[in-house]
Design a protein around this nucleic acid. Structure first.
Lengths: 208, 208
DNA sequence: GTGTTTCGCTACGGGTCGTAGCGTAACTTC
DNA sequence: GAAGTTACGCTACGACCCGTAGCGAAACAC
């Protein structure tokens, strides 16, 4: 029988402070060196822990960076109701863009997504720790818009409902990421306004 | 006085076949090993050239991968006129998605974009070799839609014109990339249809 | 106290990096 | 042809990072 907390009953407990120091050092090194030149030896030295301690907790660079970045996503769970679909979209866009203000996220997120191309476990980890948490904000805005009557209620076919939600999530998140990472131009209020307007107009007619 | 071809007058010329072999081997290694485990030693061995030859032409892994990927973008210069803005958008979306069908592009493009976060020269290289070439397709579709009267002609302020074009490019390219890379779901005809419809509806009302 | 787990430290073989040096091959110019 | 120039393949090298093993000490539960 597996206990609820699987393996921590006896012995010396793992230092929670070491965890924070390692993840912080990882983000710091990520900004200074970038993904390619980041080494676990360097991270261990910055964090003030032994390299072996690092390997006891993470399997490698990929997993470490995912956790270091995921920690920055943990706080934001929802978004205040801004009164209209357009305002809510604008809020979500600015929220996403705010996350990409962290240099560590800009550098690390793309790198781990690239690595996830041929590492299914890593992709799952990214999805659970980061992507699904962002998607929740989009689903929240969608539900609010439905309750306001701005967009039609859920389709009788749940598959179609999920399909539409996936589309709008890819559009919002993808646009912001592309703007910041590829076009290398910051997301300002004006851009968020125009994107929100574009989507509201598109959504208002998409079901007729 | 700099000659038009700066440095190639005398001496043994560089093997064009070696170039092709190296870039091909890079793409092959990229698919098999991924960005992180790709080594220049391995690429040289696959290409059948000496490692030193590789270093004589590229400064490092970043530059090599950018060129290896950029070669896959060189053929597609434009898109047939499909008769309507919606059809053209659909065509561009499917074209972008088709590029991401190359496993080498999926794996390498994100990685070099991540590295470009702290390497301005690399970012410029990516922009010239890849991004601007894609943007051209969007601008082409925009011009066609204007000649059809589907969207208003260029604003008197060229800055506003460029701003709107940048927005729609970020939305199209970003949505496709996010769909394929993050959501890890292929772009099929149905998805392209729905995205194109969303954008056409949004664009039809955005200037009122 | 005893038992257990984590910690810091050191050391190690294996691999890649990026460069240097050498002799040879290919091509241009005279 | 011969001389000059550049690219090539090959070998070797110090430097660095990887990931693991082994050790004694520290921090907990019982």
């Amino acid at each position: 029988m597996e206990p609820p907390t699987p393996h921590k009953r006896t012995g010396r407990p793992r230092s929670a402070e070491a965890d924070r120091a390692i993840l912080g050092a990882t983000r710091e090194a990520l900004v200074e060196l970038g993904w390619g030149k980041l080494t676990l030896s360097d991270v261990a030295a910055r964090a003030g822990v032994a390299k072996t301690t690092l390997y006891r907790r993470w399997a490698g660079k990929n997993e470490l960076v995912v956790d270091a970045i995921a920690a920055l996503f943990e706080e934001q769970l929802d978004l205040p109701d801004l009164g209209s679909l357009q305002a809510d979209i604008r809020g979500v866009v600015l929220r996403f863009a705010g996350l990409l203000d962290h240099p560590a996220i800009r550098t690390g997120l793309m790198a781990v997504v690239a690595e996830a191309t041929h590492d299914d476990a890593l992709r799952l980890r990214i999805r659970e720790a980061i992507v699904d948490r962002q998607k929740h904000l989009v689903l929240l805005g969608r539900a609010r818009a439905q309750s306001r009557g701005e967009i039609p209620p859920d389709d009788t076919d749940p598959a179609l409902t999920a399909r539409d939600a996936d589309l709008i999530f890819d559009v919002i998140a993808g646009s912001v990421v592309h703007r910041v990472m590829v076009s290398a131009t910051p997301v300002d209020d004006d851009w968020a306004d125009r994107l929100a307007l574009l989507l509201v107009l598109g959504l208002s007619g998409v079901r007729r």
